[in-house]
Write a protein that binds this DNA or RNA. Structure first.
Length: 231
DNA sequence: CGTGTGATTAACT
DNA sequence: GTTAATCACACGT
């Protein structure tokens, strides 16, 4: 392996990982290409593998559904960094979500990992997700996926394309194409101007794909009515 | 639980 | 008059 080149797969511990050029493409090319691929999660105590079955593309500052829509902030800064890194955010005061930053750099685009099949490390996943009734539920949904893989803010900005053997996240190279058809549709919970884009991608019929939840229009919480003010 | 947002207040020229 | 700092709150790709 030639140091300094990223056109060749990187190798760590005998496994080949996708090079940064995999992520340095338009997000709508990368997102469906992630389906069926193996995400490797390495912790000090374990090595897990997840077969990705469901993703959503977020197309940067031009996409009303994206965290990057209103420009760079402290939270979304990693989306504005180079491709091949993780963007991890906290949501609902409870859960983490894992995104993979795509190129080209400066567009702040990323792919949200929404579902997958745990194919290695089921024990660890089950310890973290004791309520999962079936193995297909271990990483079915973005928050479940993050929980199963022990994703938290310490992974925000993590580089998937490093040769470091202790790299927390990587993506296996040389995977065969998806065994089932790729389907696409509107993104879960995205409304407004970004609602109609079919930027959610999943493997048809896979039991680890989360159920589609249409965008729920939010209405403003009613303020105090004058008639309610009695004294 | 954090974040972004709009409203409100303060600071400054 | 304009901009910056502060506050409160709705809502969560």
């Amino acid at each position: 392996m030639i140091a300094g080149r990223d056109s060749e797969p990187t190798t760590t511990g005998g496994h080949a990982y996708v090079p940064r050029s995999f992520f340095d493409r338009p997000v709508l090319d990368v997102a469906p290409d992630l389906l069926g691929r193996i995400l490797v999660r390495t912790t000090p105590g374990s090595r897990m593998q997840l077969r990705i079955t469901e993703v959503e593309a977020y197309a940067g500052e031009a996409d009303p559904g994206s965290h990057a829509y209103r420009g760079k902030t402290a939270r979304n800064a990693s989306m504005f960094g180079p491709p091949g890194h993780a963007y991890v955010y906290f949501i609902y005061g409870m859960w983490w979500s894992l995104n993979l930053v795509c190129g080209p750099e400066g567009q702040a685009s990323g792919v949200l990992l929404r579902g997958g099949e745990v194919i290695q490390g089921e024990e660890e996943a089950r310890q973290r997700r004791p309520k999962a009734r079936r193995d297909t539920e271990l990483a079915k949904g973005p928050a479940r996926l993050a929980t199963a893989l022990a994703v938290d803010r310490t992974l925000n900005g993590a580089d998937l394309c490093t040769r470091d053997e202790t790299a927390p996240l990587s993506l296996l190279a040389g995977q065969p194409g998806p065994s089932t058809a790729i389907r696409s549709g509107p993104r879960t919970g995205v409304g407004g101007d970004g609602a109609h884009h079919p930027w959610r991608f999943w493997l048809d019929g896979d039991p680890t794909v989360s159920p589609y939840r249409p965008h729920k229009p939010r209405h403003r919480k009613p303020g105090l009515d004058a008639t309610q003010v009695t004294t």
